[in-house]
Design a protein around this nucleic acid. Structure first.
Length: 262
DNA sequence: ATACATGTTGGAGC
DNA sequence: GGCTCCAACATGTA
C-alpha cells in the first residue's frame, strides 16, 4: 500500500468524520479502549501512515505494510486487526500495524516530506537527496524521511520515466538531474492517485512486473538492488547507469579506472 | 503450487 | 552507541 492509495482510503473514511465510535474490536495488541465513545475528529495521512485523530487529541495510526487491507461496511472472512463501529457503519482493518499516538501530530510528523501533501517541499527534498551522495537512486526514493509515501511501484516507474538505472549513485547526478528526479516523483505520485481512482493503475505500469520494455522491447531486468535489497524492475538499455567520470589531476582527459585506454 | 512481494520494525551481532 | 543484517509478520497472486 503506497502513499497515494491512502488518500483514497482517507476520502472513503470521511463518512465517519464527526461520528462517535460505539465499539472497537479486533486482535490488535494496541491499547485502544480509550477510544470507546470518542468522536473521530479528523482523518490524516502522512506517507503510508493513516491517522485517525480523535477529539481527545489522541490518534490511532494504521500502517498497511505489504499485505494490509480494509473494508468499509463489509467484513472479510478473516480475523480483523481492528474494527471501529460507528452509528452509521463500520471500518475493518486487516493485517496492518496499529499504534496509538498520544503526541501532538505536529511534533512527530513533518508534512513537508510527504510527496502528496500540500506542504510537500521540493527544495527540502533536494537538500536531503544531496546529503546522501553515496546512496543508489533506488534506495533514496524509498527513504520515507525524504519521499514519504513512495513505495516500490512508484520507485520503479519513476526511474524508468527519468531513464535512470536503479543502481546509479546520487553523486553521479547533476543538480538538474536530481531536481528532475524529484519533480517526476511528484508527478508520478499524482498520476498513481488519479489512475488508481479509476481502477487503471496497472494499465499504466511500464516496467513494474512487466516482461519487456515498452520502448525497445528488451527484456525487463528484475533483481534486488541496494542496501534496502528491494526488487528493481528496469530496462538495462533505456535506463542509464551513470557513473561519475574520474578525472586525472591536472589533466582534462577522462580516465576510466581499471581500464587501459588504447 | 511454491515462491514471491505495493513494507517496516526490532533485536542480534559486530 | 551506532551500524548492518535478518527474522518476523501475513496473504494475494503468479
Amino acid at each position: 500500500m503506497e502513499g497515494p492509495s491512502l488518500l483514497i482510503i482517507k476520502d472513503e473514511l470521511s463518512v465517519f468524520k464527526g461520528k462517535k465510535v460505539t465499539a472497537l474490536e479486533g486482535n490488535t495488541t494496541a491499547l485502544i479502549n480509550e477510544f470507546k465513545d470518542q468522536t473521530l475528529k479528523e482523518i490524516k495521512t502522512w506517507g503510508k501512515h493513516l491517522i485517525l485523530k480523535f477529539k481527545t487529541k489522541a490518534s490511532i495510526r494504521i500502517h498497511f505494510l505489504m499485505f494490509g487491507s480494509y473494508r468499509i461496511n463489509e467484513r472479510k472472512d478473516q480475523q480483523e486487526r481492528l474494527r471501529l463501529i460507528f452509528n452509521n457503519g463500520e471500518v475493518n482493518f486487516y493485517n496492518c500495524s496499529v499504534k496509538v499516538l498520544h503526541e501532538k501530530l505536529e511534533d512527530i510528523y513533518d508534512w513537508s516530506t510527504d510527496v502528496l501533501s500540500p506542504q510537500w517541499c521540493t527544495e527540502k527534498a533536494f537538500d536531503q537527496v544531496k546529503l546522501n551522495a553515496q546512496e543508489e537512486v533506488a534506495d533514496i526514493l524509498l527513504d520515507q524521511e525524504i519521499f514519504s509515501g513512495v513505495g516500490n511501484i512508484i520507485k520503479n516507474e519513476v526511474l524508468f520515466n527519468v531513464k535512470l538505472h536503479p543502481k546509479t549513485k546520487v553523486a553521479s547526478l547533476s543538480n538538474k538531474e536530481v531536481k528532475n528526479l524529484i519533480k517526476e516523483t511528484e508527478i508520478y505520485c499524482h498520476n498513481f492517485l488519479r489512475w488508481k481512482k479509476v481502477y487503471e493503475l496497472k494499465k499504466h505500469w511500464q516496467v513494474f512486473r512487466k516482461r519487456t520494455c515498452p520502448i525497445c522491447e528488451t527484456k525487463i531486468s528484475k533483481e534486488k538492488t541496494g542496501k534496502r535489497n528491494r526488487i528493481s524492475h528496469y530496462c538495462e538499455k533505456c535506463q542509464i547507469l551513470k557513473t561519475k567520470p574520474v578525472r586525472k589531476p591536472g589533466k582534462s582527459k577522462v580516465a576510466y579506472a581499471g581500464k587501459t585506454l588504447l
